[in-house]
Write a protein that binds this DNA or RNA. Structure first.
Lengths: 211, 211
DNA sequence: TAGATTGTTAATCGATTAACAATC
DNA sequence: TAGATTGTTAATCGATTAACAATC
């Protein structure tokens, strides 16, 4: 029973993965139902906010009962777009690239790391845990033949923008960017930045404020 | 000329590293001054928001002139707490740990990666680019002797919480958490989460919405 | 001085919290 | 039914944008 979409705000979207994580966990632990009150204690949000959030995309609970864990988890799963396959390539086969290629957070969610790309002739040709490393020259062809829809950027800062341009030219519309720069790209390309130094500076701010 | 602190909101804090990045770049390129208008075009914010943000911590510009790049950069540098040294250890010497230990975003900002810790006897004892790997048993002693103030968690999910507890017992008050779980820790410990799967799910959401 | 651009107040917009009637 | 807990409206709070007087 889903309401036909009012628009879900970005603040809610950013909380969805967290809801999803907690619901998955509850589900695995065998919980059938959960109230906004119980969930609020676990997640550190207010019960009121949880009800507003869930209502904003019409994931109805049941008055006097609560939310069915499995059902709510499934609704959020689909809302996050996880009912489609994502075929990813990693650009840059350094330590970060390798770390992402083995990342345990992705398994079982239709996120497939298919290949890595680099220009280092020592790396090209190798395979790690079933993920082959190809030369950048082969990127365009590979992306088209394998219907790749996400590129994960793990290259040095100096070449970040130009590699991003190269990725965009293949037709890829989703980029996860680990390079600590602000990419300038066409509006129809979705970028999600993971800026490790920005995050660390938020931490140093907090540490320097606490007396 | 700094106003003695109205409180800076968290929304502003999260934008500070970005301001810092752009100002550092402008400074390196030899710019002396910048107006809120010019900065707004570069950064994709409104000029009004920029003036509000900068004013919230009293980084005054000059009417009719703009902001002095070097001065503004320095003020934000200090506000982020980067005028103090941060001595970090990485917990977990896998690919991610190694990636962070070489991370180019940190250099020249008083962020020092001093050591890595692991329990794998094949890794313990090695040194990579001057960063030694020690056994976890030695963590407490090392932290105390070397005045470590930040721990960067790069361990498998299954042991994330228990390793975090171990870190907290050493007295460390700042944790950067790469483990895709929600840590439960005392309130006086500052946590900055970098949740790679959460970020990716935001991207899959955006990709699935754009038809 | 005149022009430019800030600092700051007021208006708007959006997100969170509170409250409670609806209902399972 | 009575109790519990949602869905939803209203109130509050905070963040962003607009506007303009102050001033370099």
């Amino acid at each position: 029973m889903r309401k036909n979409s009012k628009k879900v705000s970005m603040s809610v979207i950013r909380r969805l993965p967290k809801y999803y994580r907690f619901l998955t966990d509850l589900n695995e632990r065998g919980f059938q139902k959960i109230s906004s009150m119980e969930l609020s204690k676990m997640m550190g949000l207010t019960a009121s906010q949880i009800r507003q959030d869930l209502n904003s995309f019409g994931a109805y609970g049941q008055q006097g009962y609560g939310y069915r864990v499995q059902e709510l988890k499934d609704v959020i799963h689909d809302l996050l777009g996880l009912n489609r396959p994502y075929r990813c390539v990693i650009i840059g086969a350094g330590n970060l690239g390798h770390a992402i290629s083995h990342y345990e957070g992705f398994r079982n969610e239709g996120i497939w790391i298919r290949a890595m790309f680099d220009i280092d002739s020592e790396k090209v040709g190798q395979t790690h845990d079933g993920v082959p490393i190809f030369h950048m020259d082969y990127l365009d062809e590979y992306v088209k033949e394998n219907m790749i829809n996400i590129a994960i950027l793990c290259v040095p800062r100096a070449i970040g923008q130009s590699v991003a341009n190269q990725v965009v030219r293949t037709g890829i519309k989703g980029i996860m960017n680990f390079v600590p720069i602000d990419l300038t790209l066409p509006d129809d390309v979705m970028i999600e930045d993971v800026n490790i130094s920005d995050s660390l500076y938020t931490l140093t701010y907090m540490l320097s404020r606490k007396q």
